Simulated scan of single mutants.
Amino acid sequence: MSPPVLEVSALTKHYGGVHALDGVTFSIARGELLALIGPNGAGKSTCFNILNGQLRPDSGSVRLYGRDITGLAPRRIARLGVGRTFQVATVFASMTALENVQMALIAARGQVFGLWSPARRMGREDALALLEQTGMAALAERPAATLAYGDVKRLELAMALAGDPALLLMDEPTAGMSGDERQAMIALVRQLTRARGLAVLFTEHAMDVVFGHADRVVVLARGRLIADGSVEAVQSDPAVRQVYLGGAPASISEAP
């Protein structure tokens, strides 16, 4: 059995008397789509920000393929193979979709300070290949400012893949999308997870996305991990039902 891509061990972060994370432990394997869910204030954002180096934990460790990356700078963690997308997509609005991905490739390859050849030619074929993988090839020459929101999210995904990550962190990848758009986006992520052998950790409030596509689900509540298992196991877990539905017998898939 191959080693986990990511191992999170006893991760703890306090803000005064508030336990944002309290001994959180989980792992994720290559080719696995893992959902990290929980009510507002559960600790999801704190966890993500520690994983990609924006925050330092008070204690605990984060290992990528067995290498301790706890507390490293975001740029260094990215270079080691951790990509990230954000709830609010961040792209260069004045650039075309193709140029956005080219810039992501240039940054990932450390070529930003060596642009003695025109940037428009650098990484063009690789950028087009990433746009093809994310269903954006037909919109390659469109300025990002003119793209529909769902297309901007797919463009951001292509940019995150430019660094050829082993682990991809996705913060609310379907936020702001319609039901059909949500399903199409997460199906694309699932396909790329399998095809590229990625490990994908994502947060999501849309339970139809989580329980329709995740391989496994980790649940946080008040900074503590209360469940880690298959979709079926988490849906039937009494502690999870209590957190989301106050113990009601209805399916957790009805939760907002």
Rank of each mutant, 00 (worst) to 15 (best):
F92I: 10
A93L: 01
D126M: 02
A107D: 02
S117A: 12
L130R: 09
R75S: 08
T96H: 11
M103A: 15
F113P: 00
P74V: 06
R121E: 14
L115M: 13
A97Y: 03
P118I: 11
N100I: 11
A129C: 07
T90F: 00
V88H: 11
L128M: 14
G110D: 08
D126C: 03
R79H: 13
Q111W: 05
R121I: 03
R84N: 06
V91P: 05
A97R: 03
G114Y: 03
T96I: 09
R120A: 10
R109P: 00
W116G: 06
G110F: 10
L131C: 12
M103L: 15
D126G: 01
E125I: 05
T85R: 12
L80W: 07
R75Q: 13
I77C: 05
S117V: 11
A104Q: 04
Q87M: 13
T96Q: 13
A78G: 13
L98K: 03
L98N: 10
L80Q: 15
V91G: 08
E125V: 07
G83P: 12
G83F: 07
L115S: 08
A127I: 00
A104T: 02
A127K: 00
A107H: 11
S94W: 04
M95K: 08
T134W: 07
M103K: 06
F92Q: 00
A108C: 01
F86H: 09
M103Q: 10
A104W: 02
V101T: 15
L98I: 00
I106H: 00
L105E: 02
E99F: 04
S94Q: 14
P118V: 11
L131T: 10
F113T: 02
M95Q: 14
R124C: 02
Q102R: 07
Q102A: 12
I77G: 04
F113I: 00
R79S: 13
A127W: 01
I77Q: 03
R75V: 07
L80E: 15
T134Y: 11
A129I: 00
A93W: 01
A97T: 11
L128N: 02
G81I: 13
G114N: 11
F86S: 08
E99R: 13
Q102V: 04
S117W: 13
V91I: 15
R79A: 15
R84H: 08
L98Q: 09
R84G: 05
Q87K: 08
R124K: 14
Q111A: 03
A107Q: 12
Q133I: 02
I106E: 02
L128V: 13
P118Q: 12
G83Y: 11
V101K: 05
M122F: 06
R109A: 10
L130Q: 12
A97E: 03
I77E: 06
L105T: 04
R84P: 09
V82L: 02
N100D: 08
R76A: 14
E132I: 04
I106R: 00
P118G: 08
V82S: 03
Q111G: 04
T96F: 10
V112C: 00
V112Q: 09
L131M: 12
R124P: 01
G83I: 10
A127Q: 00
W116C: 04
V88R: 07
L105M: 08
L115R: 10
V82C: 05
A107R: 14
P74W: 05
T134P: 06
I106V: 14
A89H: 05
A89E: 03
D126I: 01
M122W: 06
G123H: 07
M103F: 07
T90D: 01
A78Q: 11
V88C: 01
